[in-house]
Simulated scan of single mutants.
Amino acid sequence: MQDRRAASPLATTNGEDTNMKIAFIGLGNMGGGMAANLVKAGHSVRAFDLSEEALSAAKDAGCQTFSNAREAVEGVDAVVSMLPNGEIVKKVYTGDVIGHAPHAATLIDCSTIDVATAREVADAAHAEGYKMVDAPVSGGIAAAAGGTLTFMVGGEKHAFDAAEPVLSAMGKAVIHAGDAGNGQAAKICNNMLLAIQMIGTAEAFSMAQKLGLDPQTFYDISSVSSGQCWSMTSYCPVPGVGPQSPSDNEYKGGFAAALMLKDLKLAMEAAKRSGASTPLGGHARELYEKFAADNGALDFSGIIKTL
């Protein structure tokens, strides 16, 4: 009789068999580190990306590589994807994953895409009998490589339960946000708030300096006062102030301004669809559009340079 434990995510919870066969589609700056952490956790990873360089790096990290997504998803227990946008996510899942991966496999999309497409793809998966979650991440490239991402997960409870062991191997926190699409909703709301927060922090430091306050002195005061926020105390946009951040490396690395702009565009699209009022989110999008036009590769905290 065939041993079915390795083909079931439930095998990760009974202490008998923690190894799973996982397809990973999309091995860019984030996906490459995430796939490597799945290998470190003892899983067998079947990797695919259009980039030969990304495939080579994945192979060096211990992944088995494939020339197309359909081959990668054959016989797996789970599929994880980290792709650039909703159009590509929909194309990959409807064309290469649904109907080609085993129906017992759990489908996990970690891309940041629009809520409507996330729900459309989940509906298509459910219609064919698959469990699927949207699980966008917070944490950036360093967290992806270090296995300290936070996952915001949308999907039915049984799908979340099946996905959690996979996600836990790549992150420090896995949080169920509710039904399909709610992971994306949490991500774009969070990043809209982060963008607004960073602009406010940059404005405050810039004005403090113009008024004659030393940046470190202002940090010492505001970081223990009512103006305290993550953008100040964990990711200060002023070089040499607070914990080390991209500002200490000429705003290189971290979370690219172009990616922040992408998330703000998704947030404004969702606000329009839902009828939400987001005047500060809209203004943040305008400011990041101007900044990212010439500085898209720089960290989003570099927006202080425009002030």
Rank of each mutant, 00 (worst) to 15 (best):
149 L>D: 00
297 A>M: 02
226 S>F: 04
183 G>Q: 08
203 E>R: 12
200 G>F: 03
89 V>Q: 04
177 A>G: 01
86 G>C: 13
175 I>N: 10
184 Q>T: 04
52 E>C: 08
30 M>I: 01
86 G>K: 13
70 R>I: 12
86 G>L: 11
195 A>Q: 09
294 D>F: 03
22 I>R: 10
278 T>C: 03
105 A>F: 00
32 G>L: 07
25 I>F: 12
24 F>D: 08
42 G>H: 12
269 E>R: 10
101 A>E: 07
127 A>V: 06
227 G>I: 06
84 P>I: 12
113 I>W: 09
280 L>D: 04
270 A>N: 03
46 R>V: 02
275 G>R: 07
228 Q>P: 12
287 L>M: 14
250 E>K: 14
259 L>H: 14
121 V>K: 03
216 Q>C: 06
185 A>F: 09
295 N>I: 00
260 M>W: 04
230 W>H: 05
214 D>I: 07
227 G>D: 04
279 P>Q: 02
141 I>M: 11
299 D>C: 10
170 M>C: 11
84 P>D: 09
173 A>W: 10
1 M>H: 00
233 T>Q: 04
216 Q>H: 10
178 G>Q: 03
174 V>Y: 06
14 N>A: 13
87 E>F: 15
236 C>N: 15
165 P>L: 13
16 E>R: 11
200 G>C: 01
95 G>R: 09
297 A>Y: 01
23 A>K: 13
296 G>R: 02
102 P>V: 08
50 L>G: 09
263 D>K: 04
200 G>Q: 01
203 E>S: 12
158 H>Y: 12
13 T>Q: 13
155 G>P: 07
18 T>D: 14
201 T>F: 01
44 S>P: 02
250 E>D: 13
179 D>V: 13
267 A>Q: 02
31 G>H: 01
68 N>Q: 15
89 V>H: 07
57 A>S: 15
267 A>V: 00
9 P>D: 13
180 A>T: 07
19 N>G: 11
232 M>Q: 15
287 L>T: 09
273 R>P: 06
47 A>C: 05
100 H>W: 07
56 S>R: 14
193 L>E: 13
235 Y>C: 08
242 G>M: 06
209 Q>M: 15
114 D>C: 02
270 A>H: 02
102 P>Y: 08
272 K>A: 12
148 T>Q: 09
17 D>C: 15
71 E>L: 10
101 A>P: 06
278 T>M: 09
53 E>I: 13
274 S>A: 15
239 P>K: 03
174 V>H: 03
82 M>W: 00
229 C>E: 09
266 L>R: 07
93 Y>V: 15
